[in-house]
Design a protein around this nucleic acid. Structure first.
Lengths: 202, 202
DNA sequence: GAGTTCTTGGAGCGGTTGCTCGGATAATGG
DNA sequence: CCATTATCCGAGCAACCGCTCCAAGAACTC
């Protein structure tokens, strides 16, 4: 039945090439937008031929989905690392502040801006929705703990507070992408302060 | 020299058709994104042939620029209507609040999201920059007056406060576009309250 | 009505793009 | 060393899209 496998798949090699292409995709998407990022240019950036590209990703949309999923994984890992903390507000401010750190890599804000307007594939919309849900899950958990501990306002339901935290981080990333003089490392302080005011209320 | 004009241009008719196409463009751009909005579909939405489209706009990019310029005009008109007010903070909060009202038309947040990632034409980038500058001009003027009157914090320069007001409105529009449960009319209050906290400082 | 210009539609062209395909090469097992 | 399969490339294909072009009709002046 099973034929002899003359050359098995080297999983490490495979994953490395994948990451190489993902990195190139992140770069080109962020500076040209989704449609502006032609597969030819992505291949050029990655230093590969188009045949190789489609050997690793069946579709250009698949590459984008893979990038988004990588980001979602990162969110979950970050959440796991904070699991045993006992200061809800501190955790929330740390999570919010980490957005500002992400924005230090200029590709990140550019990428989210470029990807925001992609409506082509429903699979992309779903990946975006999953990422949003992952962030919401993490934040809601800590907001609710904060409310139980009396550290976070209770006149606004947790879900809405979560939306507002995402509003702040989303607006922050947009500003970094659009306005060159908006320095994320400088504005980090105001971001955390605004979030603290939001959580406290009044 | 001048030949007899057998049929003069009906400016009213021309402007009306223009607006009709602009309206269709706004709709299709907002639901499909810039590249996803094919000229064929815009024509279909407007109920015209492609020949007619390019009779009014030399280029698809020109249509987008026209829409953006219309928005910029609106910003300036709104600013002119508030010129003789004497309460800077009240004016600023009203300007911020008007964003929430704009978001009531679901095409507006969809449009800004769709257009955010367009890097093709430098003319589009310029139109976006002009719009941003127009908003900044209006806001900065009132922020500075508020600072002089002691109603607005002075520990952060006016330019940065303006950036943060735009961060709030930008994030607000993004949330409306992304999250169906984020109701702009409900969240209007928190938007104004957050802006007030930001202006007051502490 | 004649003459002229404005207006409109849609077939189709040129260029671009995502993706396919077949062959060449490299790597591994026997 | 041979067989086999993964890996890689890039020429080229099919589809699509922005835009052109031209002909037909409408609207206006004289």
């Amino acid at each position: 039945m099973g034929k002899a496998v003359a050359r098995p798949v080297d999983l490490e090699r495979h994953a490395a090439r994948r990451l190489q292409i993902i990195d190139a995709g992140l770069t080109v998407f962020s500076e040209r937008g989704y449609d502006g990022a032609t597969t030819a240019r992505i291949c050029q950036q990655a230093g590969i031929g188009s045949g190789t590209f489609f050997h690793y990703f069946a579709t250009k949309a698949d590459l984008l989905v893979a990038i988004l999923e990588l980001g979602t994984d990162e969110v979950r890992e970050r959440a796991a690392g904070l699991a045993d903390r006992t200061d809800p507000v501190g955790v929330l401010l740390e999570l919010v502040g980490s957005t500002a750190e992400d924005a230090a890599d200029p590709r990140i804000p550019g990428f989210v801006r470029a990807v925001a307007g992609v409506m082509d594939e429903p699979r992309i919309a779903e990946a975006l929705a999953v990422d949003d849900a992952a962030q919401r899950d993490v934040l809601r958990q800590w907001v609710e703990r904060g409310q139980s501990a009396g550290e976070v306002r209770t006149d606004v339901p947790a879900e809405r507070i979560v939306s507002w935290l995402l509003l702040l981080t989303g607006g922050f990333l947009e500003r970094v992408a659009v306005d060159e003089r908006f320095d994320p490392t400088v504005e980090n302080g105001l971001l955390v302060a605004t979030a603290r005011n939001l959580l406290r209320g009044g």
